Simulated scan of single mutants.
Amino acid sequence: MARRTIRLRRFVGGQAVRRGAQPKVVALGGGMGLSASLTALRRITGDLTAVVTVADDGGSSGRLRDELGVLPPGDLRKALAALCGDDDWGRTWAEVIQHRFESKGELHQHAVGNLLIVALWEQLGDHVQALDLVGRLLGAHGRVLPMSAVPLELTASVRGHDAARPDEVSTVRGQATVALTPGEVQQVHLVPPDPPAVPEAVAAVLDADWVVVGPGSWFSSVIPHLLVPELRDALQETKARRVLSLNLAPQPGETEGFSPQRHLEVLARHAPKLAFDAVLADQDAVPDEHSLREAAEQLGATVQLAPVAASGQSARHDPELLAAAYDRIFRMHGRIGPWR
């Protein structure tokens, strides 16, 4: 425990983080990528908000969505689990809400946290209030918000989805399908188009000191945020500095064969006016540093290379290393103004 305390204090200039002396950070994404970012960020700030995609249509989330017409709770649940503390209370609750039932009946593979979140949505009739209540129960080190209060469908234009017609562009529907699609994803869209953003999510982005986008499934978890007009506008208008955090490896299916710089190019295609201050990448995941720096310059960003992968698990982030990398970027680029 002493060793952990020393490392975390180093992140804040040799002193423990004090309320009123820490950056306001908003992290956008979904799934395991966002969870990795949140697990790291809660180590360096106590003022943290997650804004989460709501287009999941697979597994427990998809079943609840189809049966009850609710937002898919799965990525929201994962974000809440990532914000649980490292003490006994936090570890216990993180395990409880991630627990999945094993049965031969209707509860099979439903996650406890999904059922809890949906129950509170039905009881309270308010997505944000219910998620805040779950966060207080868990002792979460931050807030979790959906990017929209409307259940969304993700569609993708995919070249070569049918191997027999490699040049043909076809439409693939559903986040779970897009994530694993063969062929090359050209563009993604949301149904309904131009959905409303959750006002609290927009306000958090506008009030932030730092906004972190990614890592995560690029087309199905990261880019959807840029397809919500109010949220995209807030990302472009905020005075916060912006970090784009890249994945450790291409994802089989939707970004298979993508170079790090290709990730930047497709993001810019979906939000051409969005600029960044820094692009964070693992130093061992960048075979062509020059090309990545050129692509980052098109976004107004510099490239920050750092070891952020877990030892022996090249596709998993190490939370301590990722926290150190974020902290170094925050310090390098300075403050917009006094941290509240």
Rank of each mutant, 00 (worst) to 15 (best):
M1P: 11
A2Q: 13
R4F: 13
R10F: 10
V17C: 11
P23V: 09
P23Q: 10
M32W: 15
G33K: 02
A36W: 10
T45Q: 06
D47R: 10
A50L: 01
D57M: 04
G62E: 09
D66N: 11
G69F: 11
P72M: 07
P73W: 03
D75T: 12
L76H: 06
L76N: 02
A81W: 04
L83E: 06
C84S: 08
C84P: 02
W89T: 12
G90S: 03
G90M: 02
G90V: 02
I97Q: 04
R100Q: 03
F101S: 12
G105A: 07
G105N: 04
G105C: 03
H108W: 12
Q109G: 14
G113A: 08
N114M: 12
A119V: 07
W121M: 14
Q123F: 14
Q123T: 14
D126G: 02
Q129V: 15
A130M: 07
L131R: 01
D132C: 08
G142R: 01
R143E: 01
S148A: 01
P151V: 06
L152N: 06
E153D: 13
V158R: 00
R159Q: 03
E168T: 12
V172Q: 00
L180N: 15
T181Y: 00
G183T: 00
E184F: 05
E184M: 07
Q187Y: 09
H189I: 12
H189C: 14
P193Y: 07
P195G: 02
P196L: 06
V202A: 08
A204C: 02
A208S: 06
W210P: 12
W210Q: 14
P215W: 00
P215C: 04
V222S: 11
L227V: 05
L227R: 03
P229R: 09
L231D: 07
A234S: 05
T238K: 06
K239N: 15
R241P: 15
S245E: 08
S245M: 12
P250H: 06
P252L: 08
P252Y: 11
V266K: 06
L267Y: 08
R269Q: 14
D277L: 10
A278V: 15
L280H: 06
A281S: 10
D282I: 05
A285R: 07
V286E: 04
V286L: 05
E289N: 04
E289D: 13
A296R: 10
A301V: 10
A301G: 08
V303C: 03
A306H: 02
P307D: 06
V308A: 09
A310N: 09
S311G: 09
S311Q: 13
S311A: 11
G312V: 03
G312P: 01
S314Q: 13
P319M: 01
E320P: 02
R328Y: 09
I329S: 01
G334T: 15
I336Q: 15
P338R: 12
